[in-house]
Simulated assay, not measured.
Amino acid sequence: MAASGGRRRGGSGGAAPAGRDVVLAVGLVVVCLGGAALFVRTAAEAGGGLPVVPILAVAALAGGAALARWSAAPGPRPPGAPPAAPPAAPPAAGAPGRSDPAPPLPEVGPEAVDHEAVDPDGFEHAVAALCARDGCHRVEVVGGAGDLGADVVAVTSEGRRVVIQCKHYGEGHRVGSQDLQRFGGTCFAVHEADVAVVVTTSGFTAPAAEYAAACGIVCVDGDALAAWTGARTGPPWQSAPADAAPGEVRHPVR
């Protein structure tokens, strides 16, 4: 019983302010009409010939306008009512619910193999553009912090998943076996590559090439990259047998 009584008191408390507003508004109209009548009466007793009906009509209109304005104003919110929701802001660029087009891959030219003409990020995009040019789809540049060795990921027209690591090195800085070992530990097990490729602007040490051949990683050095860019040779995934399993020996592209 105590709980029920509490709910009734809460409900009546929410309706009381609205009732008081109506009483005050009606009282305002009555005051306007009474004031107008008193003015007319005083003027008549003084001998002034004032039009009674127009004055009363104007007073009634003023009182009605005040009543309408009073009733349209937002009243106090009943206890326990949720606050009014603010207007929704339009979604910002890049926020969920708004799709922004992916940046297009750059066109491939001779400068793609010139390590002095591009930076490491530009080199990754140039390799991705080569993949797209040679028939791959779902080409992505994924290099960055925490990439676990994958810089470019693509799917060939035959449905083979290609995972590429890009090494933007100077002429005297060759890719060593430690680089290949780190990539070999993730390209198949983590990235699920059907074809794993290491592309560099320089070359590979002999131990690195041996390790790559033993693990089935295709190596593309600066000369092979120039031939691939100039379409003098096929893409590197064509050198990996389609039926080869990860770990089988494949001959690196030299």
Results as ranks from 00 to 15, higher is better:
A72H: 04
A72T: 07
P78A: 11
P83Q: 04
A88Q: 15
P90H: 01
G94T: 07
G94V: 13
P96Q: 06
G97Y: 13
R98C: 15
P104D: 11
E107S: 14
V108H: 00
P110Q: 07
E111A: 13
D114R: 00
D114M: 04
H115T: 04
A117S: 14
F123Y: 04
A126R: 10
V127M: 10
A129L: 10
C131V: 02
A132H: 12
C136I: 06
C136Q: 00
R138T: 10
V139A: 01
G144N: 09
G144H: 08
A145R: 03
V152G: 04
V153Q: 13
V153W: 02
T156G: 06
G159M: 09
I164A: 06
H168A: 14
Y169R: 02
G172N: 10
H173T: 12
V175F: 01
V175R: 00
G176L: 06
D179K: 00
L180K: 03
L180Y: 01
Q181G: 15
Q181Y: 07
F183M: 01
G184N: 06
G184D: 07
H191S: 04
V197D: 09
V199P: 06
F204Q: 02
P207W: 05
P207V: 12
A209M: 10
Y211H: 12
A213S: 14
A213Y: 00
